[in-house]
């Protein structure tokens, strides 16, 4: 597996505050170049917020974020791609959504677009309006568009939150292929099953704090925090 040039990701004492509410509380972590890192936790744990902060879409209230020793900026963001929970598709055809990110790269972008659409299993739908696709297809298109930018790091925010199991399987297969190509994946989910299927590395968050971080096998065999144990047992964690 080739190494991603943007790793490791180092986060020190990261805080995010809105008014009096501390939504992210001194999160420190180092994420290495090991396949898929899954961030899991109940709703309101700060998972999506963490993802937006490390991507640079939000300014932290305190703390530091470094990608391969470099601070956040357009240069680091350009080499990452983020897939949102609710895919943001443009009011255009499927192909035109991919073209939008490929055109600035110039050259023979049509060929690359067709490759990307084939990979995502969307080629036969290329002339359809993107917003008329099913939920699963929309999410696959958002993922295909993210991959079309050739990112070193792929960030995903609950990509399978509102799609059925067949569509989830297709997305997970795409993610495995992407991992094999050496793209680092950081995935946010609250689905324990998905985390077990995909994770090489696990982070567990609760109430704005990072409670656990370690290899997935160790985490699932013996979670050290009470909240993670309860979460894995399917209990309601508040």
């Amino acid at each position: 597996m080739p190494a991603s040039l943007l790793l490791p990701l180092e986060v020190d004492d990261l805080c995010y505050r809105i008014g009096p509410d501390l939504l992210l509380d001194k999160v420190s972590v180092a994420i290495e170049n090991t396949g898929i890192s899954v961030i899991m936790g109940p709703n309101g744990a700060g998972k999506s917020l963490f993802l937006r902060l490390i991507h640079g879409l939000l300014e932290p209230s305190a703390g530091e974020i470094r990608w391969a020793g470099r601070s956040l900026g357009p240069d680091t963001r350009r080499r990452q791609a983020l897939v949102f929970q609710k895919p943001v598709l443009m009011r255009r055809s499927v192909a035109a959504n991919i073209d939008f990110v490929l055109k600035p790269q110039g050259g023979r972008y049509r060929q690359r677009r067709d490759e990307v659409l084939h990979e995502a299993g969307l080629y036969r739908l290329r002339n359809q309006a993107a917003r008329l696709l099913s939920g699963g297809e929309q999410q696959r298109l958002a993922l295909a568009r993210a991959l079309a930018t050739n990112p070193d790091v792929l960030l995903l925010d609950e990509p399978c939150a509102s799609i059925d199991s067949a569509a989830t399987l297709r997305i997970e297969n795409l993610l495995r292929q992407t991992r094999e190509r050496g793209v680092k994946i950081i995935l946010v989910t609250h689905d324990t099953g998905q985390a077990r299927r995909l994770a090489d590395d696990m982070l567990f968050m609760h109430n704005g704090r990072l409670l656990e971080h370690g290899p997935a096998a160790e985490f699932f065999a013996a979670p050290s925090s009470e909240q993670a144990r309860a979460f894995l047992d399917g209990k309601i964690v508040i």
């Binding site: 937006r52 991507h55 879409l57 357009p74 963001r77 990452q80 791609a81 983020l82 943001v88 930018t149």
Partner: peptide, 10 residues
């Protein structure tokens, strides 16, 4: 609607 996606894509 598009802002975050566009900023993400630089």
């Amino acid at each position: 609607e598009y802002d975050e996606q566009f900023r993400s894509l630089c």
